[in-house]
């Protein structure tokens, strides 16, 4: 408990504002999942002990903003119906609990261990059903990369860039880079639509399609560009900067050598 209070003290005074913003995100996610006809089942395998552990963690770390019964407060959204997938994504990638105010919750080293995250997810899912954490069989990376690539370009590339390098949104928000993100979290993000990302439910992008998208992302991540270093995959801006700094730089250095009188 001492640890928890220390964390609470560390919060920035403006954290409330952020929590409201994030709360809104959760509300949206909650709505989305509530009205979804695709009701994901809660894991029945979760032991009662895990749920109890999660309950304690929730009361200590999350209830201040999200309410004791997930009902939400002015500081944070209701978590009813967000499901285990959403909790796993937000807590597992370190986005929750919030560290500071900002346009959107930033990814950071997770605050809880895997067991604690699982317990929190189980607890939230036990109170109200929602999308569950994808199973390993949904996350295999041997799907159809061609289909995944096409779907990625149509549904994701406009925000995340064709190579998953990320991109800007309005008012300081951004779509994060996807390189190095675990398959599980990519899947959960599509399913739950964290922050300002739209929800891609299983009717829009089927579980097979999601697997294909992950397959595609892992393909381009694991097969380095045949052309050599990728310059951040930022496209012509990075290329232009490179030629002006290194191309022109090298050429000018050599012209100076070429025209200087020899010793």
């Amino acid at each position: 408990m001492a640890r928890t209070s220390r964390k609470a003290n560390r919060r920035h005074p403006l954290a409330t504002v952020v929590l409201i913003a994030i709360g809104l995100a959760f509300t949206g996610g909650g709505y989305a999942l509530f009205s979804s006809t695709a009701t994901a089942d809660t894991s029945t395998a979760t032991s009662q002990a895990t749920v109890e552990e999660g309950s304690k963690l929730f009361a200590a770390n999350c209830a201040t903003c999200h309410g004791m019964n997930l009902e939400g407060t002015t500081a944070g959204p209701s978590l009813l119906g967000v499901g285990a997938a959403s909790v796993d994504f937000q807590v597992g990638t370190g986005r929750m609990p919030l560290a500071m105010q900002g346009p959107q919750a930033m990814q950071k080293p997770p605050q809880f261990t895997e067991e604690q995250t699982a317990a929190l997810s189980a607890y939230v899912a036990s109170l109200s059903p929602g999308p569950s954490i994808p199973t390993d069989s949904q996350l295999t990376e041997n799907g159809n990369a061609t289909n995944g690539g096409e779907l990625f370009r149509i549904n994701c590339a406009m925000c995340h860039n064709v190579a998953g390098a990320g991109g800007a949104l309005t008012e300081g928000k951004f779509a994060p880079e996807l390189t190095g993100v675990e398959s599980k979290y990519i899947y959960e993000a599509m399913l739950t639509g964290p922050q300002n990302m739209p929800v891609f439910n299983d009717h829009n992008i089927t579980p097979e399609d999601k697997r294909d998208i992950i397959t595609y992302l892992k393909y381009i991540q694991n097969n380095p560009s045949p052309g050599g270093f990728e310059l951040g995959n930022l496209g012509p801006v990075a290329e232009g900067l490179f030629i002006w700094i290194f191309g022109i730089g090298a050429v000018v250095a050599l012209t100076v050598w070429l025209t200087a009188k020899s010793n």
């Binding site: 949206g28 996610g29 709505y31 989305a32 999942l33 009205s35 979804s36 006809t37 149509i154 549904n155 639509g193 739209p198 929800v199 891609f200 439910n201 009717h203 829009n204």
Partner: peptide
């Protein structure tokens, strides 16, 4: 189907 479009979704 309209019912498949959940709130917060974007379909192309």
């Amino acid at each position: 189907k309209a019912a498949d479009v959940t709130i917060g979704s974007a379909f192309h």
